[in-house]
Amino acid sequence: MSWHVTGEALSAYASGRIADSDAWSVEMHLTACERCRAALAAEAATDVDLSTAIRESWPGIAANLSSQGRVRRGSRSRELIVLIAAGPAARWAWFTAAVVVLALAAGLGAVTPFGRGQEIPLLGVVAPLLPILGVAASYGSGLDDAHEVIASTPGGGIRLLLLRSASVLAVTLPVGLIAGAVTGYGSPIPWLAASLALILTTLALASVTGVGRAAAIVGAAWVTGLAMSAAGDVTQAAPALLDPDAVPVWLLVSVAAVAVVALRRQAFNYTSLPAHPRLEN
């Protein structure tokens, strides 16, 4: 910094005998200039009133310097962590459950008969279900205890829902892929496409029914659909819903669901439930 406050101006400022415009100029400079702040401190030390006030204020501060606690800097990445971590699904318990379920599905997968006369890898059944359950658990207003307050915030609507959905997919998909690779169960693409379509359909339906109910409906439809397709056609190697031929259909469903979510995004601005059955008066 090339310009600094003159000694004359500093002492005028310290004593209060200074025009406002000059005081402003001094203050603007002090805010940015460490050297002049220190110079002003030296100047103030010669002023009985100021130096007394500064000296006498310190013990009151020093006596109250408790431990500082776990404070964190505010940043966009910290924001993401907090918003995602608050979801019940992000808790370790849920994560562990997801891993255990997938591991079981993968372990039992290839040999478990499902329906009549046909083998469906359990992984294919379970893997697309997990993201839906995860989204429901992490956002469903019946399960998120603080939903009432969240609904009153600007960031609590569709933004939070999408954020949580993405975080759930980020956890469940890799786990599913690994499980699939370990068991050597065919191409993961059919069930990945099914996963995507199911989660998006859940979100689209959620704009009408709320997340919890939407997840239940879509989950039940998935299981029923699989059972029916397995029972119906015993000649196929895989049930129609998990057949590679079904992939374009799943993608179409996904696109349609995205359109519905975009059109109905305002529905996420409000809670779908009353505050509390007891309290609704």
């Binding site: 310009w3 406050v5 003159t6 004359e8 101006a9 005028a12 209060g16 005998r17 200074i18 025009a19 406002d20 415009s21 000059d22 005081a23 402003w24 100029s25 603007m28 400079h29």
Partner: peptide
């Protein structure tokens, strides 16, 4: 705000014109 424009003028990082204009404002506006 207590100070007045009659106080000695000091070297300022503002332009002289701005300083004069600021000091001419009424205390409420300042």
């Amino acid at each position: 705000y207590t100070s007045s424009a009659e106080d000695e003028a000091l070297a300022s990082s503002f332009g002289a014109e701005l300083a004069v204009a600021l000091d001419r404002l009424s205390p409420e506006l300042r």
